[in-house]
Design a protein around this nucleic acid. Structure first.
Lengths: 104, 104
DNA sequence: TTGACAAATCAAATTTTATTGATATGATAT
DNA sequence: ATATCATATCAATAAAATTTGATTTGTCAA
């Protein structure tokens, strides 16, 4: 059983995904692991800024990183997609079975 | 076939979900449709602020609203969960098949 | 050990987002 | 028509996130 995520966890994950440039980074990494220097070019971002965005994604648990000699390789965290998928599925299920209350 | 979402669309959706208070609103509505006045209490938010957050969620396509006499009822958009679920699934799939490149 | 390269961190400036209180709009009932 | 209730909008402020340029840290090779 996976560890239960709090609302704060989800807010952090969604915040990391709330920026087009970070979505572009994620999209680039869908093809596979890359070092920072090979992300900078395609994404078109200065080194320090890219580093900032990578940190946001990594701290949210969406990316992981590993040093390989002089370089640091980033890749999509294996569980990232599952977390989003199950959040979406639960939302879809509750929306389907939700009562129409006409509360007032 | 569903309409293709752009990166800007996704960024907007994720931004709407990036706030704990908005996640609490969404969670409350999982039980079913409610008018604004019946959200304010449980969420504990001033009227104008709640109205702002509902707008963020609605404009992202996560909620929909309908006037019922004097009241406006909000509910989870039927497609909201599906959009997130498929985003998550695609991410999970690409992470699974991603090549280890060791680029540098 | 020095030099060069890769990436992270920091402080300052900028931009975006959230919050507040006041006001406007729209519906209902008298 | 007027009063009242529900919600949205607006302008001002406060708070948070992003961007920039400079500096630091860590690794390798000469």
């Amino acid at each position: 059983m996976a560890i239960q995520k709090t609302a704060a966890n989800y807010a952090q994950i969604f915040h990391a995904l709330s920026d087009e440039k970070r979505l572009a980074i994620l999209d680039l990494l869908r093809a596979g692991e890359r070092c920072v220097c090979d992300i900078a070019g395609p994404i078109g971002m200065k080194q320090s800024l890219l580093s900032f965005h990578l940190k946001v994604l990594r701290e949210a648990g969406l990316l992981r990183s590993a040093r390989v000699g002089k370089w640091i390789h980033y890749s999509i965290h294996p569980e990232a997609g599952d977390v989003l998928e199950s959040f979406g599925r639960e939302l879809a299920m509750s929306a389907m079975s939700a009562k129409v209350v006409f509360c007032c």
